[in-house]
Structures are given as C-alpha cells and as structure tokens.
Design a protein around this nucleic acid. Structure first.
Length: 522
DNA sequence: TCTTCCACTTT
DNA sequence: GAAAGTGGAAG
C-alpha cells in the first residue's frame, strides 16, 4: 500500500513523513480493525452480490499512466477522462436489475504540486466538493445486460467549475485541481425484492487503485502528456509523425510568425524527464497479486477503514482493484422522489473490445477510508456512507462504510449495515451522500428498467457550505443537493449561494449520514 | 495556475 | 458536414 502512495510521486515530498506515518497508522489500524473490523461484526448477508466481479478494461493502459502518475485535465466545460473508465462485470444474476454508478472521491487530504519533475505534497486539501454520483445511463438494467458488454463511463466529465449555475454540464464531477482522486464503481441491486433504498439494499463498491489520478488544469508531467497523445485518438493531431509535423510546421509558419518546434522534438525532451511519480519506486506500486476482500461493516468500520490508514495517508489503495462490499444499509433514507431523467442515453457499455483483465491483486485500500478522512473526503464519503455512520443507517451508507476491498475482480459481499455514530461532518450527510445515492437509486430503481437511460444522473453530496450537486445536463441527472433541500434538511449552497435548481434537475436526496470512520479517528 | 483560443482529430 | 474531444500556446 505504501507503495501505492509512494508511487504517486509523493516520494520526496515534504510530507513523505506524514505519508509514511499515515501508512503505518493505516496498517496498524487495519490490523486492529481487522480484528474488530465492523465487518466482522457486521452480518453479511449474501444476497447475490458476493459473486460479482469487476474487471477494469484496458488495465494495462491504466497501469502505464499510473506508473508515471496519472493526471486528468479538468476544465470549466468538463473534460473526459482518459483512459476512459470501462469495466467488465461478471457474476451478476442475469435476471436481477442493478444500478451501476461511478463516483470520484478524494484519495487523501493533500494538495499536490509538481516541481522538479515530481509530485509532492504541498499542503492540506481544500474542502472537497460534495460528491456526485454518476449513474450509468443504462441503469437500472438486468445483470444480463450489464454482463453482455463492457460498461463504459467514458462520458463522465471532470470539471473544476464549482459554480456552474446553469448546471450545464452533463455527467460532470467537480474536482479541485492539484488534488488526488480515486474513481469508484458501485453496483446496487435494484431488484424490487431488494427494497431499494431500504435497509436491505445490497450493493458493492469496486475500486481500481490504478485509476487514481491527480486533477490538473494543464498537464504537469510531460510523460503523461505523451501517453495521452499516443493513446487518445482525439490527440492524434499531436502525434509526431514526420509528415504530420512537416505539415503542421508549414501551416504554422505560413500562418504564424512564431517558430515552430516539431512535436517530436518536444516530446523527446519531455520524455527524458523523470516521472515525478516515478513510479515505480515510490509511486505507484505495482499491484500485488493479492486480492483481499473486505466486508462491510456497519458504517463504522468500513472496510475502507480497515484498509485505509486513518490518518491522512492516502486512502487509495494501491492495489488495482479493490472491492468493497457492502451491504445493505439500513436506511433511513427516505427516498424521495427522484426523478431521474435521462439526459440522454449513452451507449452504455459498449466497448468493442471486451478486453479486461482481472486485476490480479487487490489490496485493501484504504482508499475509501482515506479519502474520506479528510474533510473533503469525508464529505464525499458521506455521500454514500454517511448513513451508516449516522445513527441512522441509510442506504447511502452503502458506499462507504460498507465496502470492503476486494480483489480486482472485486467481488462483493453483502452485509447489513449497522447504524453508526454520527460524526461531525455529518452535516454533509444530509445532503447527499448516501442519500442521494440511495434516493436516486431508488428513483432509478423505481423507474425501472424499461428505460435504461433514465436512470443515469449524477448525485451529489453536499458540503456544508458548498453545494455540489448539480446536474449538469438538463436532464440528466439527479442532484443531490436538491435532494437535500427537498428533504428539508438543508439547502445546499454553493459558495454561499443557495442553489435553486429546477425541480426536475434535482432529485431528492435523502439525508445521509456520514461515516465517521473516515474521519481521522475512526 | 487558470482560461481561452487554436488546429487537429474522431464520431 | 457538424459536433465534440484533444493538447499546445498565449494571455
């Protein structure tokens, strides 16, 4: 695990010490937790989630980026992730309906800087934006549907626009530049019998540590730029074939005065620089072939916790994929009505190539835990997990609390969540965290299947002060904030500004409880 | 650091 | 042909 963190290039960072400490603490905690892990305490009810495995598509490509220190551009308008997040899911009940969601949570509570060709910690992370869930447009859909082809989240966009009053962006997740994040995939049973939104809602979370990235407004590491150009079809124009360069140069020279430097030249120069993350070494750990599963516990001891260092270390697991299992939450959540609109349908899964490698190892990550620990992380975590922690368990908890890390293939186990204690953060919870999820999910579930596209929306968790949930696309999603407001708990504000979302844009959110555990203490 | 515009590409 | 996704460069 440490490796992972290291891999991220923190190596020489001033905070290394902290990071190490964190790791250690994490390990300790984990150990400790393992003993008492809630999970163990938790009753795990297998509801058919345990056999679910998720394989990251193009994992090798992800690993290339991970070894260097993956960076994802965030823009005001929203930028897609590359490599795109696609997974192959197996082990689902062909006839049961599931909702697939993706979210991006803080990997730790640090702010990074790229200097001397490497990433280092430069301070404490800014408050995380409320988490937003990206519900796959096909949701809810049968297990047969999800397993038929790759499930693609490529339309998801990353933005640094916290305001976006118009919620113009569809499928966007709000992130802070120079912060590290960890994408996660959640599979929620939407079966009627599962009582979506009910305490028994079963879900599992899968984390592929190799997909962790640092959000940036412009690439910092030239190696990453090179990898993007070499692998992203839309960046072909920047590839350096001689012909292309000549053509470009001629164009530029004819049209512009400034000197043109062949891309190849630039690239070479860049390439020589060392990767900040230097991966290997510190940074990105190679996945070990171990896979571990964690079962969720009550919200409190979520797997993540167990896995994660509590302190601030990076939550991210280093291992490739981890699974968290969750369980059922108790929910208190309410569901609200959610209207999920489908902004549009994406091609859901669809990747032509179904190549997926199972991750061979998975470590437990603290991913979940870690991220949440920080405030921001917690907040986000809250989205999902909160409920669990809170006294009232909520579905949402799902997320966090309950997950356990699993192997790459992650499998899920279902457990029942127990109520957790509320944390200070909790306020968030109210907003979305889990609530949104749940509620949204419920909404989705409710909709039912027929419409696959409908479901997809984004949920957000809200922060105490900020809001987050927005839905970008006009029809798309769901917003949690709104939900919160709907609930009456709180109104979400973004930057102090109350959001008034159009009803249809928002979905109700349920109050969520936040997971305590993420917090430091946990 | 971030935003905007540009030329280029894929869809 | 239009729309949208790319990284680079300038500001």
């Amino acid at each position: 695990m440490a490796d992972n963190e290291e891999s991220f290039g923190l190596q020489n960072s001033p905070n290394d010490t902290d990071a190490k400490d964190l790791h250690e603490s994490k390990s300790e905690k984990q150990n400790g937790n393992s003993g008492k892990s809630p999970s163990s305490q938790t009753t795990y009810i297998q509801q058919g989630m345990e056999g679910i495995k998720v394989y990251l598509h193009e994992r090798e490509l992800w690993m290339k980026f991970h070894e260097v220190g993956t960076e994802m551009i965030i823009t005001k308008a929203g930028r897609r992730m590359f490599p795109s997040f696609k997974v192959k899911v197996t082990g689902l009940n062909p006839k049961t309906k599931y909702i697939l969601l993706m979210d991006v949570v803080p990997a730790d509570d640090h702010r990074y800087k790229f200097a001397d060709n490497k990433w280092s910690v430069t301070g404490k992370a800014e408050p995380a934006m409320p988490g937003r869930l990206y519900v796959h447009p096909d949701s809810p859909a049968t297990g047969a549907h999800w397993m038929r082809q790759l499930v693609s989240f490529q339309k998801l966009k990353l933005t640094n626009n916290h305001l976006d009053p118009f919620w113009t962006c569809k499928y966007t997740i709000i992130l802070n530049s120079m912060h590290k994040y960890q994408p996660r995939i959640h599979i929620v049973k939407a079966d009627e019998n599962n009582g979506f939104g009910s305490k028994n809602t079963a879900f599992c979370t899968h984390v592929f540590t190799e997909t962790a990235f640092i959000a940036v407004t412009s690439y910092q590491n030239h190696k990453i730029t090179q990898l993007k150009i070499e692998n992203n079809p839309f960046a072909k124009g920047f590839r350096g074939s001689d012909d292309m360069e000549l053509h470009r140069m001629s164009r530029m020279q004819s049209t512009k005065e400034y000197p043109v430097v062949p891309r190849s030249t630039v690239r070479q120069r860049v390439g020589t620089s060392q990767s900040p993350f230097s991966g290997d070494v510190q940074g990105m750990p190679t996945p070990s072939a171990i896979s571990s599963q964690y079962s969720c516990e009550n919200g409190v001891t979520s797997t993540s916790q167990d896995l994660l260092p509590q302190s601030s270390s990076y939550p991210l697991p280093h291992e490739h994929s981890q699974d968290y299992h969750c369980i059922k939450r108790k929910d208190d959540c309410h569901t609200g009505e959610h209207s999920y609109k489908k902004a549009y349908m994406e091609s859901p899964s669809s990747e032509e190539d179904h190549y997926y490698r199972p991750v061979s190892y998975s470590q437990s990550l603290g991913l979940t835990g870690a991220p949440y620990r920080t405030e921001s992380g917690q907040r986000q975590a809250c989205m999902y997990a909160s409920a669990t922690q809170a006294n009232e368990p909520s579905l949402e908890d799902i997320s966090c609390n309950t997950w356990a890390g699993v192997s790459p293939y992650s499998s899920c186990s279902v457990t029942t969540m127990q109520p957790m204690e509320r944390l200070p953060y909790q306020h968030f919870s109210a907003h979305f965290t889990s609530g949104p999820l749940v509620s949204r999910l419920s909404g989705v579930a409710g909709h039912t299947s027929p419409q696959l596209g409908d479901a997809h929306a984004m949920y957000q968790g809200s922060m105490p002060h900020q809001t987050l949930g927005r839905q970008c696309s006009p029809g798309a999603g769901i917003q949690s904030p709104s939900a919160a407001s709907l609930q009456g708990n709180e109104y979400l504000y973004t930057h102090g500004i109350p959001r008034t979302l159009s009803p249809h844009q928002y979905h109700t959110v349920h109050s969520v409880s936040i997971m305590p555990e993420w917090n430091e203490g946990s």
